[in-house]
Design a protein around this nucleic acid. Structure first.
Lengths: 237, 237
DNA sequence: GCAAAAGTGTTACGAATACACCCATGA
DNA sequence: TCATGGGTGTATTCGTAACACTTTTGC
């Protein structure tokens, strides 16, 4: 006999909440939405939604991210499952948190307006509903972990960027200042940056060289054959 | 108006599956159970169960671990949420995987018999049902990560243990051989081991000194005030 | 010509690695 | 007495950290 479903067990709504990181060439930011429904109407929250029967967790998170930003094929990674009994006052809900890294200039600002969404600097966030602040803390920790081993600029920066911008990004992530010379040496020694030869205009008088990520080199270095791959240690200076 | 539940959304069974690591002073092992119910009766599987309304995720994982091992207050950490649509052929189920570290000698062997459970060496596992092999891979990776920064022997070894035993454990986790002298230096330099003065009898002719973990020192070093804490890098030799 | 940001090299220190011999004891 | 596993020290290499001056150019 084939069983068609389990018996005597409870079923729960499964939510996906996404921490959306962006970087505007100066500050690391999160995209938050203002709730226009109860409970907690008017408060700030992460973008979220419920799992549907026809999608797996990654697909659901992707759909929810798309809904707010209009973006597809975005870096998205599962973070942690949150399941405190009263975390959602409406009904017992299990939430799987995801975090994503997007180029802040790419997103669809009409959609963002529609959701009364807003970018907040990571070190100056408003109060959040439910346990969303815990999710944000977990995402910050995970991003630091990830940045130690991969140049996260892949996702957070535009195609071409300068080393001072990349350094600025790392400084935001680690909430610390880095030494220019040591940072350059380390990041260049990974061997995954290509100098384009072009210089950035407009920002500084001298102008900084624009770089691109060399995805081929990166994939090569990160292939299983080459072990754990490149690494960028948590820096002190 | 206060809403009592969400509308027009699907609800899902939420399962917890636990990867149970043990170490028998020689080999790193996993505790698996033989399913005596359909589907996949007779195949091997991780110990699992469904979330109940009156417990959070950690509590549920704890209860399930207790059910098989008889052990309470065990190291248990959430790993990852698995939610492929057809991962469970009976019904769409979301599973949150946990891994736990136990001292293999502590568990209740009657319970284990009752479940037809069995310890398998980590490098010689049987086929597992559903996506349980993926869960095991994730757990192995996480354990390596954890062992880099904390002496996992806290949980996997008995109260008193020798350095050769601890080295054996690390060698199982990393699936590599380590240099005795370098291992000792590194592990002792963490400053979280206490030499008891006693020697182990029976195993080797000379006898090795027994050590204990110094939990106070460990907590001190890992307190937020002291930054990221001690670390044990992935070794080569 | 000067303010503002970009770019560059060297030294010092500490951590990780490689490596080989003596010690204690039970059989 | 000898076989087995336990215990110890040093030289070398490599990565990280600390640190200050020159270059370019828009104003």
């Amino acid at each position: 006999m084939i069983i068609k479903q389990y018996h005597n067990i409870e079923r729960f709504p499964v939510a996906l909440d996404t921490i959306i990181f962006g970087f505007d060439r100066k500050t690391l930011k999160l995209l938050l939405i203002k709730r226009d429904f109860e409970p907690e109407r008017g408060k700030w929250s992460l973008m979220g939604g419920f799992l549907r029967p026809d999608e797996n967790l990654d697909e659901a998170a992707s759909r929810i991210l798309m809904k707010l930003t209009g973006l597809k094929n975005i870096y998205l990674e599962q973070l942690y499952g949150f399941g405190e009994i009263h975390r959602d006052p409406v009904e017992r809900t299990i939430s799987i948190a995801y975090y994503s890294l997007i180029n802040i200039l790419d997103h669809d600002s009409d959609l963002v307006k529609q959701y009364s969404a807003c970018w907040f600097p990571i070190d100056d966030l408003p109060d959040l509903i439910f346990d969303h602040h815990k999710m944000v803390e977990a995402a910050k920790a995970r991003l630091r972990y990830k940045a130690e081993r991969q140049p996260v600029g892949f996702e957070l920066l535009p195609e071409k960027f300068t080393l001072p911008e990349l350094q600025q990004l790392y400084e935001s992530i680690y909430e610390t200042e880095l030494d220019k010379r040591n940072f350059r040496r380390r990041i260049l020694s990974m061997g995954v940056l290509k100098k384009t030869g072009e210089k950035q205009k407009g920002f500084s008088k001298k102008g900084a060289y624009l770089y691109m990520f060399d995805k081929e080199k990166f994939d090569e270095l990160n292939s299983p054959a080459n072990g754990p791959g490149i690494s960028f240690k948590t820096p002190n200076t």
